[in-house]
């Protein structure tokens, strides 16, 4: 049976600074708006999982990796504007 989850997202952040909190809040809001009930957002603190960050070649945060649906895409910077984020993830028809 196919999983309901269609959107697999990984967010890489540093600690729990206001910038981190803001990035998480923005993405949750966008996901709830756009993919309610069918997304998975995993937040990874690069300070507690440096090896994973290294493996994923994360150079700066906040970085969001959309793993599914393919093609995978990686965006970096300001996630407060929904349109920009969706466009960055390749989910907006331009």
């Amino acid at each position: 049976m196919e999983s309901k989850t269609q959107y697999h997202l990984k967010l890489f952040v540093v600690g729990s600074s206001p910038r981190t909190e803001q990035a998480i809040a923005s993405l949750k809001r966008i996901c709830e708006d756009e993919f309610p009930g069918c997304y998975e957002l995993v937040v990874i603190d690069v300070l507690s999982q440096p090896a994973l960050a290294e493996e994923m070649k994360i150079l700066a945060t906040p970085t969001l990796i959309k793993e599914r649906p393919l093609p995978a895409r990686r965006i970096i910077g300001d996630f407060s504007d929904k349109e920009s984020v969706l466009a960055g993830m390749g989910l907006l028809v331009r």
């Binding site: 990686r74 970096i76 300001d78 920009s84």
Partner: peptide, 12 residues
Amino acid sequence: LFGFPIATGAPV
């Protein structure tokens, strides 16, 4: 791969 940079308007 660096990532697609997003900065709408003001610097981020």
